[in-house]
């Protein structure tokens, strides 16, 4: 099974079509149309990859990025925006985004970023699993 992806964008037609294309590539994708719903989805059904727009009514993508990185630092976040400056890109990457794209995006480039993010998640999971095998205190006997 591929990565679990949450897509967040107030343009519903865009997000639903992109979700369908990702599902055709065996990626488990689901959608939210605003920031608060996205945060609720992250709490109840955390994704491995989060793809978010920057400009949304109410809560914008930067606020979602900051909050998710605080509560779920392992989630890989990809920015996909129709209105981003070079400074926005720098800000997002400094806040922990793993990739940044302008709309319209080439699907192959987006898929490559998703796969790279998924590899990071799996690698982090493996490190955590290995770490958990070691005792927290005392000596380690191989």
């Amino acid at each position: 099974m591929g990565p679990r992806i949450l897509l967040v964008d107030d343009e519903q037609e865009f997000v639903l079509t992109l979700a369908e294309r990702l599902q055709m590539r065996d990626m488990d994708s689901y959608a939210a149309f605003d920031g608060p719903t996205a945060l609720e989805q992250v709490r109840s059904h955390p994704p491995q990859i989060l793809i978010i727009d920057l400009k949304m009514p109410g809560m914008d993508g930067i606020q979602v990025l900051k909050q998710v990185k605080q509560t779920h630092p392992g989630i890989q976040i990809i920015i996909l925006t129709g209105h981003g400056s070079e400074q926005d890109k720098i800000n997002c990457m400094n806040l922990g985004a793993s990739a940044y794209f302008q709309k319209p995006v080439d699907i192959d480039r987006l898929i490559a970023a998703i796969r790279q993010g998924y590899e990071t998640v799996r690698s982090d999971d493996q490190k955590t699993a290995t770490f958990d095998r070691y005792p927290k205190t005392g000596s380690w006997q191989p």
Partner: peptide
Amino acid sequence: VTHDMKNFLAIINENAGL
């Protein structure tokens, strides 16, 4: 306006891709 145009193009792009 250019933000709106980018969104329209993005939806057209995804539907053409689909």
